[in-house]
């Protein structure tokens, strides 16, 4: 067995942290795209679309992310679709984050007073014009802080991908621990790296919240 210096451990963890970042970005981008679609469905007022979205959200908010990951990874292969850990993790995290982002964004859109809708309708604006010019610009401002805040959950959520064998920060930590038998040092570094990824996001979220609150 080779001997790992502290630097070796950190270097390997940093290399693996790249995949945590990449997975987080994919999950966020995917979640935001699907979430946007679902949000539009949910505020459309069409009963069927609203019910479907509601069910979707309840499903993903009401079950552990780990189970969703297992279902995607093992479920798809049971159905004959051989998927990589990569794909399964990205898909499960996308579904998970889209449900939460939809819930956040719906709240933001609904926080815009009814009078804004009524005034716009009286001026003859169509549903899409009202959304585009009146509601979304205001809702966006409200949404930024909680959205950035939620991205912290995504970063931490990627750790679960280690369980299906995807080598990101946590998995790399486990492997290095098996090789070095220095759990405190290794996982201390892992935790520190997560903190360095998440802390700026939390700070940004709080700063944005304060700033955007003052602006209005």
């Amino acid at each position: 067995m080779s001997v790992f210096s502290d630097w070796d451990i950190l270097r390997n963890l940093l290399l693996a942290a790249r995949w945590t970042v990449v997975l987080s970005l994919i999950a966020f981008a995917g979640g935001a795209t699907v979430g946007l679609l679902l949000t539009m469905m949910q505020v459309s007022g069409r009963t069927l679309l609203v019910r479907f979205t509601r069910l979707y959200i309840e499903l993903f908010q009401g079950t552990p992310l780990l189970m969703q990951l297992f279902l995607v990874f093992f479920g798809l292969s049971l159905m004959g679709l051989e998927v990589s850990a990569w794909f399964a993790a990205a898909l499960a995290l996308t579904l998970f984050s889209s449900a939460y982002l939809t819930e956040i964004w719906r709240g933001c859109i609904e926080s815009i007073p009814r009078g804004q809708w009524e005034a716009s309708r009286c001026l003859g604006l169509s549903y899409f014009e009202i959304m585009r010019h009146i509601i979304l610009p205001q809702a966006l401002k409200v949404a930024i802080a909680p959205t950035v805040g939620f991205s912290v959950q995504i970063v931490k959520g990627t750790a679960l991908a280690s369980i299906i064998g995807f080598v990101e920060l946590t998995k790399a930590g486990t492997m290095l621990n098996n090789a070095t038998f220095e759990p405190f040092k290794v996982f201390g570094m892992v935790a520190l790296l997560y903190f360095l990824l998440c802390y700026p996001l939390s700070v940004a979220s709080r700063k944005l919240e304060r700033k955007l609150n003052v602006a209005r």
């Binding site: 009078g115 804004q116 009524e118 005034a119 009286c122 610009p137 205001q138 401002k141 209005r216």
Partner: peptide
């Protein structure tokens, strides 16, 4: 046209 008690101007 309609004018409301609460103005309902677009704040942004």
């Amino acid at each position: 046209g309609m004018v409301f008690q609460s103005f309902n101007l677009f704040p942004h």
